[in-house]
C-alpha cells in the first residue's frame, strides 16, 4: 500500500507516494528525477548512492524511503548554490579528482559531511571518512588532495 511521505530534498519540500519496498535511492532517481545519486552496487558496499540524511552521509540504497519521511535529504544536485559550485566541487574539478564521475557525487557528499563537522581534518581522517566510497579511476590520490585543499582553504 502506498503512503505519502514528505522529504525536504535540497531545501525543497517534496511529497511522494511510495510503496514501502522502495529505497530512498529508487525514489530519488525514479520519482524525483535526481539521477545524480548513483546506483553501483545496491548493497551498501560502495558509497556511490551516498546522500546526506539529516546531515549524515548514508547509503541510500539501504534506506527505505518510508523511513526518510520528515527528514532532510541533500543530494549532489543540492551542493551548488545560486549557480556557484561548492568549494569541494570546485576543488574536485581543479585537482583532477574526477575521472569517470560515477563515484563523484557520493564522495562529494561524504567530504561535505566531514568538513561540516571537522573543518580541518588530517590526511588520515580524510582517508577514513571516504573509506566507504569506492573509486576505481583515481586511486584516491587526487580526491584526497582536493579535499585537503578545501580543508586548508587553499586557493583553488
Amino acid at each position: 500500500m502506498k503512503r505519502i511521505i514528505t522529504l525536504v530534498v535540497n531545501g525543497e519540500q517534496r511529497e511522494v507516494a511510495v510503496e514501502p519496498d522502495l529505497t530512498l535511492l529508487e525514489v530519488l532517481r525514479e520519482d524525483l528525477g535526481l539521477t545524480g545519486t548513483k546506483k553501483a552496487c545496491n548493497q551498501g558496499e560502495c558509497g556511490a548512492c551516498t546522500v546526506l540524511l539529516d546531515g549524515k552521509p548514508v547509503s541510500s540504497c539501504l534506506v527505505l524511503a518510508v523511513r526518510a519521511h520528515g527528514k532532510a535529504v541533500v543530494t549532489v544536485e543540492g551542493l551548488a548554490e545560486n549557480g556557484r559550485l561548492h568549494p569541494l566541487q570546485e576543488a574536485f574539478v581543479t585537482y583532477g579528482a574526477v575521472q569517470c564521475g560515477f563515484c563523484t557525487p557520493g564522495v562529494l557528499l561524504v567530504a561535505k559531511a566531514l568538513l561540516d563537522t571537522n573543518p580541518h581534518p588530517t590526511a588520515q581522517e580524510i582517508e577514513q571518512a571516504i573509506a566507504g566510497n569506492i573509486c576505481r579511476c583515481t586511486g584516491y590520490v587526487k580526491i584526497i588532495e582536493a579535499i585537503t585543499a578545501v580543508a586548508q582553504n587553499q586557493n583553488i
Binding site: 551498501g44 558496499e45 558509497g47 551516498t50 540524511l53 549524515k56 552521509p57 548514508v58 547509503s59 539501504l62 534506506v63 561524504v110 577514513q128 571518512a129 571516504i130 573509506a131 566507504g132 566510497n133
Partner: peptide, 9 residues
Amino acid sequence: VGSPLLRPM
C-alpha cells in the same frame, strides 16, 4: 563495523 556510510544507520 562496516564503513562510515553504514554506522550512522
